[in-house]
Design a binder for these strands. Structure first.
Lengths: 215, 215
DNA sequence: TGTACATCAGTGAACGCGCGTTCACTGATGTAC
DNA sequence: TGTACATCAGTGAACGCGCGTTCACTGATGTAC
């Protein structure tokens, strides 16, 4: 679409800068991130990132948006063609962790509201879209297997568990190291987490718990 | 124990500096954190933090250690005196989220291995101790209610779910805002998450799943 | 009890560095006629 | 097809700032005799 674009007018600089930003986060972490370093890696003047994204926050927000888009697409792809909703849910869980692993730099930014423009409209939009894939699948599970399941809670639990798993992965590795037995791979964790969660979803029979109804 | 210590020799500066560090993280986030700002809030020379903690990493590691100590103590406290292991587990879950909420600055640092000295011995020790409280409780649940439960997986799922909940709290708030219905409080989320998880633990009957035995 | 000395705790001036931002600029592209 | 002009994309020099680190220093405390 856009011409290869050499010379003064680059033609595709915003995308190149975004990719460079991801690159910087990957190798230096969010500390050590700076517009000047991004410009350096993109091979342009240090003022260029500011011109296109305004400031650090703007550039990181663009990275976060790209992350949610990727997440959405990969979740859809992971679930497509799988008829049984439970299997689809498990596949989506695997997909989430895979995206988080393969795009760690994006993830490092996607939920860091202190560092991105949390009120960005496009950001909210793509975030919601990604979540929607999960919630729809949980709804399908409920419909076929357990109509009393509270969909929203179940979806959020799945999301939280996968996100927590990704974040605590390093700690788990330490625990595995101590245990000296076969250290669990991330895949194994996903597998066993989803098993436990699915058990919970299937046996959830308390849409409102008897004690403490409100508050 | 240590005298009030006014004058040139402060007497308790390391602790004061650690507290100031927490204060800085609370108000400025991890960005905007600097030894000089910590010194400023502690009312001492800007070289003092470096003298006691070496560098930023050293000071943040001290904060993380304090965080894990608090977490451990609060988890023990949350579970003490509760006989039924399931109720104890739920109480510990609530305790985790409460600590995470009330000590957000500590939490912001405790799992950020890019920013603390992940190989610190004391850090590993207190982290393991905190996790141990959780695992012991899950073990008690297994013993009384479901001997086939895989304790390690179940404990890690609980941990991940609570950690994910805390991290995604902001996103959930957005979703609740869209839903326009009663926005769920954090407490409500904890309540319903633990219900779902406990369901899963009680009905876990597949220590090794039939398909895909390994890898 | 007193004195000398070593060690510890904290200071403050100085340094060099990388950062974000500004701004006048220039090269390339698009549009009107 | 050509010309004039506006707009867009990116430059590079300059600025002021806050940072971490160093270092010679000084005030207070502890210990040996």
């Amino acid at each position: 679409m856009t011409p290869p674009a050499t010379g003064y007018h680059h033609g595709d600089l915003p995308n190149v800068l975004r990719a460079a930003a991801v690159d910087v986060i990957s190798s230096e972490g969010l500390n050590g991130f700076s517009l000047r370093e991004v410009a350096r890696r993109a091979g342009v003047s240090h003022a260029a990132p500011g011109y296109h994204f305004g400031d650090v926050r703007g550039l990181l927000t663009a990275v976060a948006i790209e992350g949610f888009e990727t997440l959405h697409d990969e979740l859809v792809r992971a679930g497509s063609g799988i008829d049984d909703p439970i299997e689809r849910l498990v596949a989506i869980g695997r997909g989430y962790v895979r995206v988080a692993t393969e795009h760690r730099a994006h993830l490092e930014v996607m939920f860091r509201e202190d560092v991105i423009a949390a009120d960005d409209l496009r950001l909210a939009e793509v975030g919601l879209a990604a979540y929607g894939v999960l919630e729809a699948t949980v709804a399908a599970v409920a419909e076929r297997y357990n109509p009393t399941l509270r969909i929203q809670d179940a979806a959020r639990l799945c999301w939280s568990a996968m996100q927590g798993l990704v974040e605590l992965q390093g700690k788990f590795a330490v625990l595995d190291g101590l245990a000296a037995e076969a250290s669990s791979s991330l895949d194994d964790h996903v597998e066993r987490f989803t098993t436990l969660i699915v058990n919970g979803l299937l046996h959830d029979t308390s849409p409102t718990r008897s004690p403490r109804r409100r508050r």
